[in-house]
Design a protein around this nucleic acid. Structure first.
Lengths: 216, 216, 216, 216
DNA sequence: TATGAATGAGGTTTCATTCAT
DNA sequence: CATGAATGAAACCTCATTCAT
């Protein structure tokens, strides 16, 4: 029981990770995205999963556990991705470019989770038991700030840009990416990445000479 | 906060706009901002207002009415402001600059409302009875999109920028402005406006020649 | 609001101590005694009180609070009584006599509470939030043990009596007193006290001479 | 524990008395004693038995059947023992002495069952299907009362002792015996029997002359 | 206007029990 | 015999709202 299933992260918890469980989790993700973490009732989820509400508790200890199991792997993978990026790259501009690409890709892969993270930021903070998730997200933001600061100190980024403002902007914009992406929107991941990279980096990188304008 | 706007709609019902009513509304705004529209209970608000929960209903017909009375005037004033701007200005870049400034100023004036609009976007859409507010906000966004399209058509903005992306980005960033502003943050309204204008316009405006780079 | 009503102890809590509250509390005491702390549902209580189950929560924060508010004053008064006794008396036999009388009197005054304390000892220990009550009861028992030990050391009580056994016996018997008392049973408080005193003290007191046999 | 008594009734249904069944029953007894009949869930028991909760129902038709199968044999053996005693003895004092000894011995043999009988008296009465057990226990008490009455009528016991009080006291004290017994407590069965006999009989037997005091 | 009691619908959760595999 | 998924009733509790005083 509870063999470590590759849930895209090491977040396997109490509940068994059966196929049914994952199926319910997917349903729940959609419902949470549609109605919000609080607005979505356990009955909403169970009905859509073709189950009685009490039966959910065979798979999950609580509504909160469902939410954690939905969000934690994604946030963890964001951190992992970030780690991989800064491991391979040292150029601040390049790092930011890759971070934006990664975040947009994540939004494309798990749009419902992105929507939840964006819409229910408040409830997530207040939920208790999601402290880990919240802290992880804060951790990434802080590290992106550092990257920007490094870029400024290296003379590569404009000194009049506040790293905190830019960092928050980066996540504000990439988190909302799901609104533009297929199938709902008209953009592919790559095209949207280009757009957002342009918005965020053009304002940041010092234009040494016209031929080297960073984003097109 | 919340100068007596014509209430933007016929939503004013039972309660006349007494001083007490406004005082409760201010308290409610703070509580909604802190706990979210759903998370904040009528009792939370009444306790903070030094009143019993039942007594709130002498001033407001429902929790929903409170929310409407909090949000509608602000959103209406955003529209009015926008109207005033496009009335006086025709240059797209200049319009965007002024819109950004206006939005940031609004965030500075009513930070709690900004926080509510940002955090509870979802509940606001789903609440029913706030359709007006929701439509107003959508209306502004559409009109900003038009302005950007005009700029592109006029050759002033880059053709590879999607007006919808930029428009959403503009509101994403300005709505979150309250996080940087005093008294919580370190920025004055003007300084933050400069930062955000840089982020948004640098990527947009065609750099005809170096001496004309739009934002510093 | 919440003026300190003389609840027979200092246990006034969050909920207002209105007349209605006390009335509900009395009803609840009867229901708890009949069906047991767990067996009695919030609906059982509210129905008998002529109220909807949700309305109980206007008066009490939780079922647990009800239980605490029922038990704590009685247990506290037991402690107070015990304090008063040992203040005035130093003779161990006399103390025990008075303790037995006090416990029986308590059982007569609040038979339902006695029944709850006796029947739901287990749930009370496990409930959490009743630690105070549980510890109080344990405290009295320990102090009665000391009194018995003193009696033994003074040569007044038989040395082959275990204070712990006698102490537990004393509370076992007096707690069950409500079963014999009017109106349910056939005994008055005084008569039953006599009976139980006989049972407990005859075995304890060293019979110095026939004319001084302790209980009749 | 629980020698294969003829089950005292026709309650044995689905499960044959396999070794596994008895093993689960022992586990259940411990859990019921620890958490109480209601507090102990079927899952608690099954977990401790290393089984899934649903699988319990291959051995028992219901939770109630488990309880019956735990309690009935013990209560039945108490009755049998009592029968054996009154068969051989006619002296009321001697009968009581032997009854006390038998009850304490039972408490020593099956302390968990004793604890259940003592703690969950209420739930047992209310459970339905345990009527037999309840009636058995009541039957013994009534018969002990008769013995005491006989003793009074014979001039052997004090006339001012109420048989009902003494009878209840006897079972109150012996049922609680498990609290004093090894391995938890410090007493052997014999020593505790002596103590309790002293408490109960000293108050009862008419002291004809000092040399004949009944209990030491 | 304010109070305080009450409503009633609905929320999350628990748990004994059933049953196909 | 055991599993694991599911059931369904019922438990405790929340909360926006109403209303007599």
């Amino acid at each position: 029981m509870n063999r470590k299933v590759p849930t895209a992260s090491g977040t396997t918890r109490a509940g068994t990770s059966s196929a049914r469980r994952q199926q319910i989790l997917d349903t729940a993700t959609a419902v949470f995205a549609e109605k919000g973490i609080i607005g979505a009732t356990v009955r909403d989820i169970s009905e859509r999963a073709g189950i009685l509400s009490g039966s959910l508790y065979h798979h999950f200890a609580s509504k909160e556990e469902m939410i954690i199991d939905i969000l934690a792997p994604v946030v963890q993978s964001q951190i992992d991705e970030f780690d991989r990026i800064v491991e391979r790259q040292s150029d601040p501009a390049e790092i930011l470019r890759l971070v934006i690409a990664a975040e947009v890709a994540q939004s494309a892969r798990t749009p419902n989770v992105a929507r939840i993270l964006r819409q229910d930021e408040h409830q997530i903070s207040a939920l208790g038991g999601l402290d880990e998730v919240v802290q992880h997200r804060r951790a990434i933001r802080t590290r992106v700030e550092s990257v920007i600061t490094n870029g400024i100190n290296a003379g590569q980024f404009r000194p009049d840009c506040d790293p905190r403002v830019i960092s928050l902007a980066l996540f504000d914009l990439t988190l909302g990416a799901y609104r533009h992406l297929k199938p709902l929107g008209r953009y592919s991941t790559e095209e949207l990445t280009k757009q957002l990279t342009a918005v965020l980096l053009n304002s940041l990188v010092v234009a040494e000479n016209p031929s080297k304008r960073p984003a097109r």
